[in-house]
Nucleic acid binder design. Sequence first.
DNA 1: AGTGAACGTGTAGCTTATACACAATTTAAA
DNA 2: TTTAAATTGTGTATAAGCTACACGTTCACT
Lengths: 241, 241
Amino acid sequence: MGNALQKTIQQLKSDNREFFHMALSVDCVIFGFDDNELKVLLIKSDLEEFHDEWSLLGDLVMPNENLDSASYRVLKDRTGLDDVFLEQVYTFGDVNRHPAGRVITTAWYSLINIKDHQLSLAHNELHWHPVNEISTLAFDHKKILDTCLKQLQSKIDEHPIVFNLLPEKFSLRELQSLYESIHGTKLDRRNFRKKFFLMDWLIDVNELEQDVPHRPGKLYRFNADRFSDGKKENVQEAQLH
Amino acid sequence: MGNALQKTIQQLKSDNREFFHMALSVDCVIFGFDDNELKVLLIKSDLEEFHDEWSLLGDLVMPNENLDSASYRVLKDRTGLDDVFLEQVYTFGDVNRHPAGRVITTAWYSLINIKDHQLSLAHNELHWHPVNEISTLAFDHKKILDTCLKQLQSKIDEHPIVFNLLPEKFSLRELQSLYESIHGTKLDRRNFRKKFFLMDWLIDVNELEQDVPHRPGKLYRFNADRFSDGKKENVQEAQLH
DNA sequence: AGTGAACGTGTAGCTTATACACAATTTAAA
DNA sequence: TTTAAATTGTGTATAAGCTACACGTTCACT
C-alpha cells in the first residue's frame, strides 16, 4: 500500500480491518520517596502469563480520550490524586510485547508525595516497591521502569521537579537523600547545600525538624514562585548552563 | 470498566469494538543540512482538509510491524536510505488531531546527509524546506516539528550525532555553521575549535577544502571509533559533565 | 554529665567557559 | 602583479563553577 494516512478512516475500515486489531495503552511509573528510598507503585498482574509478577499501573486509552487524559485517569483512579507531576517518556511498540495481542503502550512517569494517598492504597492490591530491589516485572515493564528512571535522573539536576516527592516542608538532609536515591550516588553535604542556596530554589520557613534523635535541621519549602506562570520557561532556561 | 489491559484482546473485541476504531502512525522529521541551513523534508498533503499544506513523512503502523520498524520503513521508502540516525521523541494522541479519525502518532527525528538521496527525491513530491522558514504545516505537524527540533538542540552538545548531517569529510567552519543553524545562535570561532579538539571527536584527514573562494580550511572526519561497540555508553557518559 | 548523631559553615585548588586580535593563505579583480 | 576580500589558524587572561575537605555546635538519649 502507499501512504495509508492519506486515506480516510472509512476507507481504511473497508480496506483492511486488521489496522484496528491493535490497542493503545498508557503505563504509569509512579515514583514515591519514603524511608530514604525511591519507590515505585506496582500492582499484581492477574494475567495468567504473568501470575504473581508485579506490573506498572496502566489501562487502555479510550477511543474518545486524549492520550494524556488517559494517563491522568490512571493516576487519579489508582492514587486518588490529581494535580500531580506527570511526564511522557517513551512509546513501546514491539509486536509481541503483550501476550494478549497487539498493544502499544506509552510510558509516563509521575512524582507524588507518598504520604498523600495512604487511604486509597488500602483498597487495592497496590504496593510500593523500592526501585533498586526490582529485578523483574510483568510484560516489558522492567524496561519501561528503567527508561523512566533514566529520564528522571537526567531531569532533576536542571529542573526543580523532585519537590513533588517531598512533603511541603523538608530538611536539606531529606532533599539530599532524595537526590542520592535517584542518582544512586553519594553527594558531598557542603557542596550540595551551597549549590541549592545559590540556585535559589528553596525558602527557609524558620522552623526546625521535630522528633529526630539528633540536632534538628532547618526546614525549607520549594520556591514555587520562581517557576510559576510565564516566567517558568525563562527561569528554567537560565539554569541550564 | 476496570483495567482493560488485564483482559484478553478477544474479550475486548466482544466487549466493545470501539477500542479498535483508532489507528497508530509514525511521523518522521527528517533533518538535512545544506547551503548553511538546517532543512526538513516535507511532502504536499493530499487530504482535502489540508490542501496545499506541507506535512511530515509518515504512515500507519502495520499490525505485524514493530513501532521502530515502521519509522525505518518510512525513511527507507522516502529517502532510499537505511542505516540512518533515527530517534523517537514523543507520541501525540489528542482525539481530534487528525481530521479523518482517531490517529495517534509517534514522532521521530532523523539526521541524514542531504546529498545522499538526490535520486529518490526526483520521483516524489518531496521538498527540503529551511526549518526557520516554516510557519505552518498540516495537522499538528508544526508542533511535532518544534518538539523534535528542541530535542535535537538539547542532544547535540553532549552527543556526537550531528555528523550524520555532514559529508564524510568536512571543515570546522561547516561544523560550526551546523551547530549555529541548529541552535539559532552565533558561536565564537576560537572557542568552538578549542572545545572540539579537546573533546577528541575529530580526526584530521590531512586534506584541504577544494573550490572555496578563500584560504581553504583543513578537513576532518568524525572519530567514530571512540563511540563504537561497548565503549559507546561509557565514553558518552564521561562527556556529560 | 557525657555520648552519639547530624547540623551548619568556608576556603583553596582545579577545571571549564568566555572574551578577544592578528598574521597567514588563497581567490578574484583591478 | 598588485591589491582587496574572505577566511584560516592560533593563545592568553579572566571569570565562573566544581571538588575536596574539618571542626565546632546543637539536640536527644542515657
